[in-house]
């Protein structure tokens, strides 16, 4: 459930912020800040929550815009990138968004684990 909230919040705030902030802000710092709120014992889950949110945000938006455009520009840009079809351009965009948000969330979680460790008394979580 935690994971879903993390995912959902990253998606929502990311979407809203994307309209005002430069491209990289949206994903990395926001996924990072939200990642600080949600603690996961396994950092891979943080990465996943961020990754899925970034993927859905960037892929969904590019899919939406490109569908209204009948993939006209995505097709042309794909040619510019060496012959990638429009769907491929959306996928690359989505994966990039996912990677950026995933790394942001992962860094946040690893940061929390590091600080926690410093003042920790409990046993270390299983390594991931």
């Amino acid at each position: 459930m935690n994971l879903f909230f993390q995912f959902f919040l990253t998606l929502l705030i990311g979407f809203a912020a994307q309209f005002f902030l430069p491209w990289w802000w949206v994903i990395a710092p926001i996924a990072f800040l939200i990642g600080l709120i949600f603690y996961n014992t396994h950092s891979i889950y943080s990465f996943l929550a961020g990754f899925l949110a970034g993927l859905l945000l960037w892929w969904g938006m590019s899919y939406y815009l490109s569908t209204l455009n009948h993939d006209l520009l995505a097709g042309r840009m794909g040619q510019l990138f060496g012959g990638i079809p429009a769907l491929g351009m959306e996928l690359i965009t989505g994966l990039l968004g996912g990677l950026l948000a995933g790394l942001g969330a992962l860094t946040a979680n690893l940061g929390r684990q590091m600080i926690k460790k410093k003042n920790a008394v409990e046993a270390p979580s299983t390594s991931e």
Binding site: W23, W58, S62, A74, M77, T93, G97, L100
Partner: peptide, 20 residues
């Protein structure tokens, strides 16, 4: 590339919706 590919700032924004 980040700016170019970002669907909120990049080339996707230049994809005009047909018929609108």
């Amino acid at each position: 590339l980040g700016n170019l590919l970002c669907p909120f700032t990049g080339f996707w924004q230049n994809a005009e919706a047909m018929g609108e």
